[in-house]
Design a protein around this nucleic acid. Structure first.
Lengths: 135, 135
DNA sequence: GTACACGTTAAAGTTCACTTGAAGTCAACG
DNA sequence: CGTTGACTTCAAGTGAACTTTAACGTGTAC
């Protein structure tokens, strides 16, 4: 089995070793086993870090991710309390989705201004999206 | 014309007055005109705040938003430098989009576990998304 | 055996996006 | 005229997510 050191994992995940230690410290990652004091990981950590990364990008806080991966997923607790949390988070995600989409259309509009009427086009785009005033 | 005070704007935008002062301070909002020392806004500010809000949600930093609304949109500068920035930001947005979508599908999968086999279902979902190990 | 790369912890520092607190200004009300 | 309430500025504080620093340990290479 490929035992990886902290910096190997960090390099592959695009993180710093300090970040991995920090994640472990706050309970987002399980305590890694030690080989003479040093952390050793196997490759499954990478998938887990990918999930954390995705969740981060999707606007979850580290705390929320810790709740998700430590409490909600592995616990067979029938408590409907986390259902509310997930429900709220799903709603948040869909508003986030629409915000990302409208932001993309704004940027695409601005990008499309490659004609000679650059200034005008940008100005129109700005007005369309409510960035410049309608003075 | 409806001249609004800072707290009226704040209430309507779902922000605190301190946030508006802060936005003005860092140049994200133009210096508001003063009526005997106090800021006065007209309703166009709300649209602008909405754009800022959308951009925030879409993962832009306040600094990036300031560049977008102050430099890129209103300037007829043909400098292709901001084109690169926008290009990068568009790419970021599409990866963000896919992250949001996969996060949503993860949460939806977890939510769907409302049968008697709750523990198993959650566990399967966790494995499917690489949250629990394949030990 | 000692130099060196890489690891460790604990504590303090950094950045971002605000918020809070102190001290003061201003207009309207009684 | 005084007090109330909403505003002002400026400085310091906050929380999240890390990073940096200092002092120390460990295994390999020469």
């Amino acid at each position: 089995m490929p035992e990886m050191t902290i910096s190997q994992v960090a390099r592959q995940a695009g993180l710093r070793p300090s970040t991995l230690r920090y994640y472990e410290e706050i309970g987002l990652l399980p305590t890694a086993r030690r080989r003479s004091g040093q952390r050793r990981y196997d490759s499954s950590i990478l998938q887990r870090l990918a999930v954390i990364h995705t969740a981060r990008q999707a606007g979850f806080t580290l705390n929320e991710i810790a709740i998700l991966v430590n409490d909600i997923i592995p616990n067979p607790s029938p408590s409907p309390q986390w259902r509310d949390l997930l429900e709220r988070k799903l709603i948040e995600l869909s508003t986030l989705l629409s915000h990302v989409q409208s932001m993309r259309s704004l940027l695409e509009d601005v990008m499309r201004c490659d004609d000679p009427e650059l200034a005008d086009c940008i100005y129109q785009t700005g007005r369309k999206h409510g960035i410049v005033g309608t003075d």
